[in-house]
Every structure is written in C-alpha cells, then in structure tokens.
C-alpha cells in the first residue's frame, strides 16, 4: 500500500519536474550544460526520496494526532519503547542514506569532471593547451581555458592565445563569449574580496577567493541554440555573484553568450584586431608622449642653459 502510494507519488513528481524546460519551481535550473543537467537529475532523485520520506513521516504524525487524540474511554498504552521497531527504523534510515550515497557517487564524476568537446565544436588550437592538472581537463586534454577574475563589482574574462605574452590576450568584462559544443574550463580567482561565480543554467557555483584558484567547467550543446536568431546572435545565460562582496553585491552580474563556432571565430578575430589596434594606438600614444617629453626637456634645457652659467650667490644657496 505504502509502496504503491510512494510509487505513484514518485511518478507524479517526475512528471511535474520533467515539465517545462526551465521550470525552477521544484528543481535547479539546467539546460545549458551537461553538468547542470546531471545536477538536476541527481536533485530530482533526492527530491523523490525526500518526498516519500516526507509523506510517510508527516502522514504517520497526522494519523497519530487524529487517531490517538484524547477521548472518553481511551487509555494511553504505557510502553517505554520497542527494541525491534527502533532497530528497524534505524536500519531503514541507514539504508536510505546508503542508497543516496551510492547514487551520488555514481553521478559525481560526470558533474565534477569535464566532458570532451563535441565533434561540432570549435577547434581549439594546439597552442592553447594549458599546464593544468589533468583531472581538471577533459579526457582528451582539450578545453578552452578562460581566466575568470572577480573584483568589486564585475567579472573579467581573459582568453588564452598561443603566445606567452599575457599583455596582448583578449579580455572582456561582464560578458563571456563562448563557442557552443566546446568544453570551457574556468580558472576562477579574485583580486579583492570573496565572490562566487554562478550561472544557474550552466551548473553549480564556485567561490572566487583571493589567493586561490578555483575550477569549474561547462559545455553549451549546439542544440541549446533554439532558433535562427540565437544561432545568429548567440544565446545569453545570466547569473550573478553569489557571495556577499560589499554594498553593490546585488549588481555584480555575469553573462555568458554562447555562439556558433563560426561566430566565435569571427568574434575572436575582431577582438584580436581591436586589441592589436588598441595596442598599436597605445604604442603610438606612448611614442608621441615620449617625443613630447623629449621636446619639453630639450626646450627646458635650452631655456635653463643661460641662467645655469650665472653663479648663484652663496647667501642664496
């Protein structure tokens, strides 16, 4: 009887949970990355087990309150315990915990360890390889590794490039642009107080703590781009800082825009060109400054030259 009830409930909850793609009434958001989907599935399993325990226990409580309310001719049974029953429910609780533990360990690697990129993903240049711990990379060792830096009250994203010079790397604030079908691994840091990186649809959160580097990953599947408009402009996943980081904590938002590999290539080229142009501009400005400074110095020297020969009276020294 209880089993049938429990099963029925489990079915009902499964249906309720499997409803709209981004229903976040019962369960965490998902749909942007396999790890978020796996967390969602694990959550649903725990939810079903929890719901059964809830209904069973709460039911027993309400039944007892109704059935054993004080009334005429009703005697309380003076018993102090029942060893067999007590051992029974202890074992029962232990078994539930054991089952949940086994299920969790079955899901854990898929959530923690990055997947390989899809075949239709962006081709990661061989020169982008990072010297990261192998466990933090997909089995084939290829991931787009991006440096995420939290600061009051914004995120900075630094992209890798082939060379060793960190100065000319592409970087953005606020919006992280990534190609679909490609495993993206993040090195999350902070340069001031603690922050937490969290895009609900792309998986769990990780703290950004000064002095430490934290890691997470996601992979937006190509099918996450649902229509032509998203295939053209990309799909935006939003999130915000999840660790109190000061007065403007609520406004420390983060956006991830997933675009097609082609669009990503184009974006990357444009950014690179911008960075180079900006670099050249900066260089030009520095050169001008230098020239200007030299001229100034020369003029000053020329003006100062005559007076410099005049001896200064000893009293004014």
């Amino acid at each position: 009887m209880t089993l049938a009830l429990a099963f029925g409930l489990a079915m009902a909850f499964t249906l309720a949970l499997a409803g709209p793609a981004h229903a976040s009434f019962w369960a965490p958001q998902n749909g942007g990355s396999p790890n978020a989907d796996r967390i969602h599935t694990l959550y649903v399993i725990v939810f079903i087990v929890g719901a059964i325990i809830f209904v069973f226990t709460e039911g027993a409580l309400i039944y007892a309150l109704w059935k054993f309310r004080a009334s005429r001719g009703h005697e309380a049974k003076q018993l102090h315990g029942n060893t067999r029953v007590e051992i029974g429910w202890t074992a029962g609780a232990a078994i539930v915990v054991l089952i949940l533990g086994i299920v969790t360990f079955a899901f854990l690697p898929g959530i923690r360890n990055p997947d390989d990129s899809d075949s239709d993903g962006w081709q990661i240049p061989a020169s982008y390889t990072t010297a990261k711990d192998k466990k933090l990379l997909p089995p084939n060792g290829k991931a787009l590794n991006i440096d995420v830096n939290g600061q009051q009250y914004a995120w900075r994203f630094v992209y890798p490039d082939g060379d060793a010079d960190r100065q000319n790397n592409i970087y953005t604030y606020e919006e992280l642009v990534v190609p679909v079908g490609t495993t993206v691994t993040l090195d999350v840091r902070s340069s001031d107080v603690g922050h937490a990186w969290w895009i609900p649809q792309l998986g769990g959160k990780v703290d950004a703590l000064p002095g430490y580097t934290n890691h997470t990953w996601f992979k937006v599947p190509a099918k996450a781009l649902r229509n032509d408009q998203e295939r053209r402009d990309g799909r935006v996943f939003t999130g915000q800082c999840a660790e109190l980081c000061g007065r403007n904590h609520a406004n420390m938002t983060a956006r991830v825009r997933a675009v097609t590999p082609e669009a990503f290539d184009a974006w990357l080229k444009r950014q690179k060109a911008d960075i180079d142009a900006a670099g050249r501009g900066a260089q030009r400005y520095r050169d001008q400054q230098e020239q200007f400074d030299r001229q100034q110095a020369a003029t000053a020297a020329a003006q100062a030259a005559p007076t410099a020969t005049t001896p200064v009276p000893a009293s004014q020294r």
């Binding site: 967390i39 694990l42 949940l100 923690r112 609900p200 769990g204 999840a242």
Partner: peptide, 13 residues
C-alpha cells in the same frame, strides 16, 4: 539536498 555537494553547488548561498 545540501549535504550532497554537487547538488549544493546549485543551492549554496
């Protein structure tokens, strides 16, 4: 739910 750490990654804070 919160004790299971991969799930906690979504629920924490």
């Amino acid at each position: 739910f919160l004790a299971i750490y991969p799930v906690d990654w979504q629920l924490h804070d």
